[in-house]
Structures are given as structure tokens and as C-alpha cells.
């Protein structure tokens, strides 16, 4: 029958323990996955650096970065540096990974965070609108438009937008985060002006998938018996839609948003390339291509923490949004 909310402490400590194990496993994977890819940080230099270096020199470099040591030794070093919050130096860029990440994350969040929020809001609003008026002109128009966007190559789409709004109309800059040599309020406005188009496009990308999920989920909820009962109670459509339907969409919406927030720090590779932005997307891409282990490890570490934090937040919100789930957790 009624279950009192008593085992909360046990639940939380249980949860913390499981998160700790998850983090450890991911940290381990973050170490091994880069090393399982063909080649190592030196192989790429064999290409570009052949201009300057003799081949034998690469082995000296390997030794310098400790890459010649047995894997388990490197792993222990990796763990002990992590314990000291030491992320090491980028092999390819010769900068402190920590500094590199901090700068990139700041700009990436400035770009992606608003996009996730705007994209989510747009998806929720349009998805609900289309879901409630399924089969209407508006619904069909929006759904086919967003489906088209969802399946279109994003680089091409973004390029077309740049070419229209930045190149032909000249409303926005062609790229970067700022014009340079500005200070104070005008600098902030300048950054906002630079971010407008990339955020708009990224929001659209973020919105497409969520929109489709919301719309379908609304269709499904409208068919539920309790919605019929709500109508039998003489509630207006507005009340039914806003209170009864949307409330039921929230759990799903929260989990998608959590995922989007979790992956936020992985940046937006395509948008970064199109708008020449130095964000996490290109950082990770370059690091993977050049097998820059320390950067990969550092970036994946940050990503891990974001994902887990988002997951944790989603867990909490999910429990609030759907009482059945909160109860199911209590009983664990």
C-alpha cells in the first residue's frame, strides 16, 4: 500500500557508491580507449615532422613522454596524476591541458549552453503545438521542415545560413567569438552579435530530435484514458494540455535535456568549423586525429563529469516529474 519515504539515506549512499564505480570505470576507459587506436602521438609527427626530424628521434620522444613504458605503469602514473588533478601537457600543442580545457570550455559553454536551452524550449513549444494539433497544416509543415533539417547534412545547412545571413545580407560576422580590440559593454554586445547565428543554428539542430520526440510523446499521451477522464471532468483543452499532457511529457523531456547538457562540453564540431570557433569540438577532434593522449584524457574526464552530473540532476528531477520513478527507486 502506501510506502513511506524512509530509505532516502540508504538510497543516496547507494547511489554515491554506484556513481563512484561508474566514474572509476570511465576513467579507466578514458585511459585505454585512446591507446587502443592505431598509432600513438608520435606517429602523426612522422608525417608532418618528417620535414625536421629523423625517425630515430621519434623513439627518443616516445621515451620522453613515457610512452615506451609498459601500459600498466603508464596507467598507474595516469591515476596518480589524476589524483593530484594534474592533467599534464598536450603533446601536440605543448600547452597545459588544464589551461587549454578551461579556455575552451568557457567558450564552448557560452555557445552550447544557450543553444541547449533555446533548442529545448523551442522543441517543447513547437513539439507540443504540433502534438496537440496533429494532422493540421501547421503540424505537417513544421514536422516535415524539422525532419528535413534533422536529416540534412549539418555542415551544408550551416554554410548556407552563413552564406545568406553573413555573406549576402551582412547581418552577422563570418565567424569567431569577437571582433577583437573591444572592451566593456561593447565587447559583450560584440560577442553576443558573433554568437547569434551559431546559437540560432545550433538551437535548431538541438531542437529537431527533441521536437520529434515531444510531438510523438504527446500524441501517445493524448490517447491515454486519463486524458479522456479529464475531458469528462469538463476541463478545458488549455487546462488539459498544459496541466495534464505537458506534465506527462516532462520526464522524457528531462532525460533528453540531461543528455544534451551532459554532452554540452563535447562542443559542437560542425558549428565550430563553420564559424571558426575554438571550442571543445575541434579540440577533441584534433586530439583524436593526432592521438594527443593527455588532451583526450582531459577532455573525456570533463565530459565524464558533466555526463554524470547531468545524469544525477536528471535522476533527481525525474523523481519529481514522475512519482512512480521516485517510488521505484525508494524500493531499491
Amino acid at each position: 500500500m502506501l510506502r513511506p519515504n524512509s530509505k532516502t539515506t540508504l538510497y543516496i549512499s547507494n547511489k554515491v557508491f554506484r556513481y563512484a564505480i561508474t566514474i572509476f570505470i570511465i576513467l579507466t576507459l578514458n585511459f585505454f580507449i585512446p591507446r587502443m587506436m592505431p598509432g600513438d602521438p608520435m606517429t602523426n609527427m612522422l608525417g608532418e615532422g618528417a620535414r625536421w626530424m629523423d625517425k630515430a628521434y621519434l623513439d627518443e620522444l616516445r621515451a620522453e613522454y613515457g610512452l615506451d613504458r609498459p601500459l600498466h605503469e603508464q596507467y598507474l602514473t595516469y591515476l596518480s596524476s589524476l589524483a593530484r588533478f594534474d592533467l599534464g601537457y598536450s603533446i601536440n600543442k605543448s600547452l597545459k591541458v588544464k589551461d587549454l580545457l578551461m579556455e575552451r570550455i568557457f567558450w564552448t559553454l557560452l555557445l552550447v549552453f544557450p543553444s541547449v536551452i533555446i533548442g529545448g524550449a523551442v522543441a517543447l513549444i513547437l513539439g507540443s503545438f504540433a502534438g496537440f494539433r496533429q494532422g493540421s497544416m501547421m503540424d505537417r509543415l513544421m514536422t516535415s521542415l524539422l525532419l528535413l533539417l534533422y536529416s540534412s547534412p549539418s555542415f551544408l545547412f550551416a554554410m548556407i545560413m552563413v552564406s545568406i545571413f553573413s555573406f549576402h545580407l551582412g547581418w552577422f560576422p563570418l565567424g569567431n567569438f569577437a571582433s577583437g580590440k573591444m572592451h566593456g559593454a561593447s565587447y559583450v554586445l560584440d560577442v553576443a552579435w558573433h554568437l547569434f547565428l551559431p546559437i540560432a543554428i545550433l538551437s535548431l539542430f538541438e531542437a529537431t530530435y527533441t521536437y520529434l520526440v515531444i510531438r510523438n510523446s504527446i500524441t501517445q499521451i493524448l490517447g491515454e484514458y486519463f486524458i479522456f477522464v479529464a475531458r469528462a471532468k469538463g476541463l478545458s483543452n488549455r487546462v488539459i494540455e498544459l496541466q495534464h499532457v505537458i506534465r506527462n511529457v516532462l520526464p522524457q523531456f528531462i532525460s533528453i535535456m540531461a543528455l544534451n547538457f551532459g554532452f554540452m562540453v563535447s562542443g559542437a564540431l560542425i558549428i565550430e568549423i563553420v564559424f571558426s570557433l575554438n571550442g571543445m569540438g575541434t579540440l577533441i577532434y584534433d586530439a583524436v586525429i593526432s592521438r594527443d593522449y593527455p588532451v583526450m584524457q582531459g577532455a573525456f574526464l570533463v565530459l565524464t563529469f558533466f555526463l554524470i552530473a547531468a545524469n544525477f540532476a536528471a535522476d533527481l528531477l525525474y523523481g519529481i516529474a514522475d512519482p512512480r520513478i521516485a517510488d521505484a527507486k525508494d524500493s531499491i
Partner: peptide, 8 residues
């Protein structure tokens, strides 16, 4: 192949 694999 990607560039690292190529050079490897």
C-alpha cells in the same frame, strides 16, 4: 584511414 593510422 585517418592520418595517425596512415603514418603508423
Amino acid at each position: 584511414v585517418d592520418s595517425s593510422t596512415y603514418w603508423k
